[in-house]
Amino acid sequence: MALSRSSSWKEHRLANRLECDGTEYSVDLVARKATGVEGWKVTVVYLPRGEGAEIKVDLPNAASTAEVRRLVTELEGADERLRELCRQGAGG
């Protein structure tokens, strides 16, 4: 997935298939400019590949595009960290 949709929206696929607590997800990082937010509002979105609910986990705001790219680099392929965030977002 491309890192940008428009100048105010960036998204990147972190994992095509990530199993977390019995559910398989596609995982995307979404960063967007938002009213009242300095820099970028960053969310990790878990989309179930079958049955299950979508999970969204807000991360701290990113000050710049470079910081968004750094987050992508840190989280891409970091399956255990992504599972931790998934569980946090699911309330467990």
Rank of each mutant, 00 (worst) to 15 (best):
E11I: 02
V42I: 09
W9M: 06
E80A: 09
R70E: 11
H12A: 11
V45C: 14
R49S: 05
E51H: 13
G22E: 03
L82A: 00
L71Q: 12
D58C: 07
D58A: 15
L47A: 11
N61D: 15
S4H: 10
R13G: 12
A62Q: 07
L82S: 09
S26Y: 01
V30G: 04
K33T: 14
V68P: 00
L29T: 09
R13L: 09
E76Y: 11
A53F: 13
E67T: 05
D28Q: 10
A63E: 02
E74M: 02
D79K: 03
L3R: 13
S7Y: 00
T35D: 14
V42L: 13
L29K: 13
T73Q: 12
T23N: 02
P48A: 13
S8W: 07
R17D: 11
V68F: 04
S6Y: 06
A66K: 07
A15L: 05
S4V: 01
E38V: 13
M1A: 11
E51G: 10
V42E: 03
W9A: 10
N16I: 05
G52F: 12
R69N: 11
K10Q: 13
I55T: 14
R83C: 11
A2L: 08
D79A: 10
E19W: 08
G92E: 01
N16Q: 10
V27L: 04
S4T: 04
E54L: 11
E84I: 05
W40T: 09
W9H: 11
V44Y: 03
L3W: 12
I55F: 14
G91A: 01
W40P: 04
T35L: 15
R83P: 02
E51S: 14
T65Y: 05
E84L: 07
L71A: 07
L18D: 00
W40E: 03
G77E: 11
E24A: 15
L14K: 12
V37L: 00
R87A: 09
W40M: 03
E24F: 11
S64T: 15
G52I: 09
E11K: 01
V27T: 03
G39H: 08
